[in-house]
Simulated assay, not measured.
Amino acid sequence: MKQLKVWGIAAVLLVSMVSASMAAEPVKVKVFVGAQFEIGKMAGDKAGEFQHWYEGYLKDAKEYKVVGAEHPVWVNKDGVAGSVLGMGKVRSSSSMTAILVDPRFDFSDTYFIITGCAGTPPRAGTVAAVFWADYLVDYDLGHRWGAGEVAEGQPLFSVRKGYESVRTIKLNQKLVQRAFELTKDTPLQDSDTSKNYRKNYPDKMAQRSPFVGVGTHVASDTFFHGPTLSKEAQYVCDVNGAGTYVITEMEGVAVGYVITKFGHGDRVLSLRTAVNFDQGNPNETTLEHLDPAPGNYPGGFSTGIKNAYVVGSRFVNEVIAHWSEWKDGVPAK
């Protein structure tokens, strides 16, 4: 009888603890950073897309396991949160969905930064440059057919008009412009390897040192390379009225779409660094560009990933330091 009484008290205490947990106020997130992959550990080894963010903001943060997400979410005491969402449109968007529906978080006033590495066409960018997106475009939504099934010389991929809103997200231009203004003069790292590599390209933009810019980010589930597919990517942007593409990546439009469907589309930013060109130089084939000879590498991954963090952190620090001004939307200058 005494044992039953003890068990009854324990049950009441357990129910009380669960109720208290369920009644706890959700954590207010001010800025959420979503990267796509990490290399090894979250800190202390070779940095992937997330490590600098983790070390800069989240190493002492609280960790939350989220059902359905690829990795945990970390939230620090200042309201900065982040996670590794997974590579490709499917994994990244499903992770973002799982995180957004978790009742432990309050994303009602959150600014979202989708970040990571990417490629760039040599006419528009250079190795280790960093670009804020003004448009997010899906490269894959179109019509495709085999060689020999259309007239010779006709394209094998077509994007027909009528689905622009499905393929394209125009980000909040006021927010994008403010992020650019806050970060455009950020000192960026470079490497001797990248400096030498750029000399292989005749384009003036490709030969530039790293810089901060704005342009369209095109997402594809394939790692497309070469001048032909680069023209095709721009054709997709032209059909969708989405400006000039400067970044090739794999997740942006998918993650951006999820965030938009949850009602936060006016607070989405995409920040990518170009760690390679999306095509070879005039003296190499596309396959030679994909499988380069020893020593013929861009050398921009480590510097680019660091540059993306340094640029993005300036925006994050501004928002956190002046939250009362940013909470209700992009403030006046």
Results as ranks from 00 to 15, higher is better:
321 A>H: 00
84 V>N: 06
258 V>T: 11
69 A>T: 05
261 K>V: 07
150 V>G: 12
193 T>A: 15
196 N>V: 10
9 I>F: 08
155 P>S: 08
78 D>R: 02
164 E>D: 13
9 I>E: 13
76 N>F: 01
227 P>I: 05
15 V>G: 10
245 Y>E: 11
148 G>N: 10
247 I>E: 05
109 D>G: 10
145 W>E: 14
215 G>I: 01
287 L>A: 15
130 V>R: 09
52 H>A: 05
102 D>E: 10
17 M>G: 04
285 T>L: 06
187 P>L: 11
270 S>C: 15
214 V>K: 06
144 R>M: 14
25 E>M: 11
328 D>R: 05
258 V>E: 05
63 E>P: 00
112 F>W: 09
38 E>Y: 08
126 T>Y: 06
78 D>P: 03
160 R>Q: 14
232 E>A: 11
147 A>Q: 15
150 V>E: 11
234 Q>M: 08
20 A>D: 09
139 Y>F: 15
189 Q>W: 12
168 T>L: 12
161 K>M: 10
122 P>V: 00
45 D>H: 14
132 W>K: 02
301 F>A: 11
89 K>R: 09
103 P>W: 02
6 V>N: 12
55 E>H: 04
305 I>V: 09
275 V>M: 05
83 S>H: 00
95 S>C: 02
189 Q>T: 14
330 V>P: 02
133 A>W: 01
179 A>W: 04
328 D>F: 01
264 H>V: 00
34 G>D: 03
283 N>G: 03
232 E>I: 02
293 A>L: 09
154 Q>A: 14
29 V>N: 04
314 R>N: 07
69 A>Q: 00
297 Y>W: 12
224 F>G: 03
100 L>G: 03
236 V>A: 13
296 N>S: 12
105 F>M: 07
199 K>I: 06
284 E>T: 06
229 L>V: 04
134 D>S: 11
217 H>K: 04
188 L>I: 06
28 K>Y: 01
115 T>S: 13
333 K>Q: 12
71 H>S: 14
33 V>F: 05
237 C>K: 07
108 S>I: 02
300 G>A: 08
324 S>H: 07
166 V>D: 15
99 I>T: 04
144 R>V: 13
287 L>R: 13
96 M>F: 09
111 Y>E: 05
209 S>P: 09
30 K>S: 01
239 V>K: 09
174 K>Y: 01
42 M>I: 14
88 G>T: 00
199 K>W: 10
140 D>W: 05
327 K>N: 06
295 G>C: 08
126 T>C: 12
73 V>D: 06
71 H>D: 14
158 S>Y: 12
22 M>W: 15
156 L>G: 10
225 H>Q: 15
41 K>R: 13
104 R>E: 12
92 S>I: 02
193 T>P: 01
107 F>L: 10
35 A>H: 03
115 T>M: 09
321 A>D: 01
298 P>I: 10
121 P>T: 06
79 G>M: 05
167 R>M: 03
216 T>H: 06
276 N>Y: 07
149 E>H: 14
303 T>R: 12
38 E>G: 12
